[in-house]
């Protein structure tokens, strides 16, 4: 007898969405993300990246078909999806709503009804994983941008999610904090979905890239392949990332050289 197939991490078929004022947010998105796959979502402003991520995190019930870890994203399934998916907001200020880092990281586990020793264990483990154990008792409003971002990620990790969904995680990070973030993402072993304008970050952190424009999928493939296609990027309001551009210019110069 063969083992039962594990459900897809994310499966969307004809997923669409309209905002309350009627503005279309997503237009018939089809997508299949296997467990432990690492996906990036790129697109210009207003392309629907955040809206798509909100669907994956269980903010909205799906119009069309969407299942996360085999759970239908209907009103009934949203609570379970939220329990199993960790979502990082664009602005960590929105996510750090308790006075100190430790209290904030403990918020999710406490809501799960875990025992206090288990909560403390999860908090310590999440903080240690991000190398911010020393910030535990710091008030959230005293942290730097990078520290806030790390604390917000720790709050998500403490829930031990199976899928990590990040919305613009490198916003406002300096080079050091950004590098630490990339290192963390590369070490993450679960399913990962990142929406970002930072194409370099996507190039380094994901294996598959989805290009969105006006709520519709316009390309899916390996990041380097899509991000090298200057015509495609330009048509959808994006630009080739600097590292690929430098590489291309070097090769062109090499060819021209006698």
């Amino acid at each position: 007898m063969s083992a039962p197939l594990a459900p897809l991490a994310i499966e969307a078929r004809s997923l669409h969405f309209h905002y309350p004022d009627g503005t279309p947010g997503l237009a018939s998105v089809d997508l299949q993300v296997a467990p432990k796959e690492r996906w990036g979502i790129a697109g210009a402003n207003g392309s629907g990246k955040s809206t798509l991520l909100h669907h994956f995190a269980g903010v909205y019930a799906a119009e069309g078909h969407l299942s996360i870890l085999g759970i239908e994203a209907t009103k009934r399934g949203l609570a379970e999806i939220r329990r199993r998916v960790g979502f990082l907001f664009q602005d960590p200020e929105d996510q750090l709503f308790l006075p100190t880092v430790a209290e904030d990281v403990a918020f999710g586990p406490r809501q799960l009804g875990l025992s206090e020793p288990e909560v403390e264990k999860r908090v310590a483990s999440a903080l240690a994983r991000l190398g911010i154990a020393g910030l535990a008792e710091r008030p959230c409003h005293h942290l730097s941008g990078g520290e806030k971002q790390s604390a917000a990620i720790a709050g998500v990790l403490a829930l031990e999610p199976e899928i990590l969904v990040l919305d613009e995680p490198s916003n406002d990070l300096d080079a050091g904090a950004r590098r630490r973030l990339i290192d963390f993402l590369r070490g993450w072993e679960g399913t990962l979905v990142i929406a970002s304008h930072d194409l370099e970050l996507l190039l380094e952190s994901v294996d598959r890239l989805l290009l969105l424009d006006r709520g519709a999928v316009v390309a899916v493939g390996p990041p380097a392949e899509i991000l090298r296609d200057r015509a495609l990027l330009s048509r959808h309001g994006l630009e080739e990332p600097p590292s690929l551009r430098a590489l291309r210019l070097a090769r062109e110069a090499e060819k021209k050289a006698p």
Partner: peptide, 19 residues
Amino acid sequence: RAHRIEVAMRLRGRRGALP
């Protein structure tokens, strides 16, 4: 911001009171 904070709380499983 209040709306975003409320969504953030829900996504982290808020069940009533803050601790």
